[in-house]
Write a protein that binds this DNA or RNA. Structure first.
Length: 421
DNA sequence: AATTCAGCCAACCGCAATGGT
DNA sequence: AACCATTGCGGTTGGCTGAAT
């Protein structure tokens, strides 16, 4: 029954690594790169399976690993990201670039989870535990909307994480070719990015609408953290410090302030003048340049939407591919697309708001030319963007803000060495 | 000093995803 | 399309360490 363990070969060592083994592995990878993990142990003279070598390298020996105590900022980041992403440790780890997923997972399980539990917060839902007992219509609606928003942001973060991974691989591969790297890329030259919101993520299982209409491909910083900052959710000194030692990969996968950062398309394919990239599923192509700090500019960013299906102007299924150099971004949707936080269908002439989207949802702020997502509860046929937000919507967003704020405040007021923990 | 207990974390296991043929 | 090899990921385990008794 089942697959035989990879290390069941006689003679292969298991358990803790010795300094000698570490040295062998390190020396080999520094000289040759890891290449095929399966082939590595014999080449490196190690009595280990490739999997064990890979784990040892990625979780311990890699030179770009930060070890030691987690800072308060890192703790906050983990909690915030966990609220959005659930137990997707690798995705969380990409926003704490010097921490491994394993370390974050361990830290969550041994510290943060217990802390939240003691504070009366469900570490899975990130809501007060007695919230489940309060199931008035408004609250259940709020929960559903939060879930939907989290789903959106989750997809976006995942996309960013993958882009960052790919770009790192590219970078490392390039360095290898130049003979100056200790890393090696095991991935092929062509890369792909798949965002499928209809996945089997456990946390999202409860969500009822597995659709994605907009998948932002970049933001200058982690939206939630920015929302925290912009909304004054952090203490003033924390605001002034930005996000502390957080090294969000999104900040390195950023658009230059002066670059033509346009991904907005119209039905005619004409570029807009927006200062943030937007993706619109309108079946035309556009061009833009994407620049990655410290790397070559990505030329010839193109997108095409060739598989969207529309019914009465409502996009029902879509596969959109963006090609950006070696990178290919594919977004697929199943089922009718709707705006987050509402059941209003996404229509072909709706502009997808990227950077503002989730922040505005949280902060209930509208901006300039774009139709705010918070307005989408109205009739989407109002193409003038004059949809109305009603009072209960305002309460909803205020509640959301207060909820997230309360989590952060609780954590802030509960340092690790507090007797509470 | 010896034993027990709890916390921590490196490492393992197995499933899922991906890529190649 | 099917199969296989490889890699990625998240859950879990087991050993080490220090505190408590």
């Amino acid at each position: 029954m089942g697959r035989s363990p990879c290390c069941d070969k006689v003679g292969l060592k298991k358990g803790p690594w010795t300094p000698e083994e570490d040295q062998k592995l390190l020396a080999y990878i520094e000289e040759h790169g890891h290449g095929s993990w399966r082939a590595l142990p014999s080449k490196a003279g190690l009595q280990r399976c490739g999997k064990s070598c890979r784990l040892r390298w990625t979780n311990y020996l890699r030179p770009d690993i930060k070890r030691g105590k987690f800072s308060l900022q890192e703790e906050q980041t983990i909690i915030q990201l966990h609220a959005l992403l659930g137990n997707r440790w690798s995705a969380i780890a990409t926003h704490l670039s010097k921490r491994t997923d394993n370390e974050i997972k361990n830290y969550w399980n041994t510290h943060l989870k217990k802390r939240l539990t003691k504070m009366g917060i469900d570490p899975i839902t990130h809501k007060p535990k007695n919230d489940a007992l309060l199931s008035s219509d408004g609250q259940s609606k709020t929960a559903a909307n939060l879930s939907h928003m989290a789903q959106w942001e989750s997809a976006r973060l995942e996309a960013e994480a993958r882009l960052v991974r790919e770009s790192k691989l590219r970078s490392h591969s390039l360095q290898n070719q130049l003979g100056s790297s200790t890393f090696a890329s095991s991935s092929s030259a062509s890369t792909s990015l798949l965002i499928n919101n209809n996945n089997n993520n456990k946390q999202e299982a409860a969500s009822t609408t597995p659709t994605t209409t907009t998948v932002p491909i970049q933001s200058r910083s982690l939206d939630v953290l920015k929302a925290w900052n912009n909304g004054g959710w952090l203490k003033s000194n924390e605001v002034s410090n930005g996000v502390g030692d957080l090294e969000s990969p999104t900040s390195t996968l950023s658009f230059s302030e002066n670059a033509p950062p346009i991904m907005t398309t119209t039905n005619s394919g004409i570029l807009g003048e927006n200062t943030m990239p937007m993706i619109e599923f309108v079946g035309s192509s556009s061009g833009c340049s994407v620049k990655e700090e410290g790397e070559q500019e990505w030329k010839g960013y193109e997108s095409s939407n060739n598989l969207a299906e529309y019914k009465d102007g409502i996009m029902e299924n879509s596969v959109t591919t963006f090609t950006c150099g070696l990178h290919e971004l594919t977004m697929s949707m199943e089922g009718a697309a709707t705006w987050p936080g509402s059941h209003e269908p996404f229509r072909t002439n709706d502009h997808a708001i990227v950077e503002e989207g989730f922040i505005n949802l949280l902060l209930n702020t509208n901006s300039g030319n774009h139709r705010s997502l918070s307005e989408c509860g109205g009739d989407s046929n109002n193409d003038d963007g004059s949809g109305s937000g009603n009072g209960s919507d305002g309460d909803f967003y205020e509640d959301n803000k207060n909820y997230w704020n309360s989590i952060l405040n609780l954590v802030n007021s509960s340092p690790s060495d507090s007797p509470m923990f």
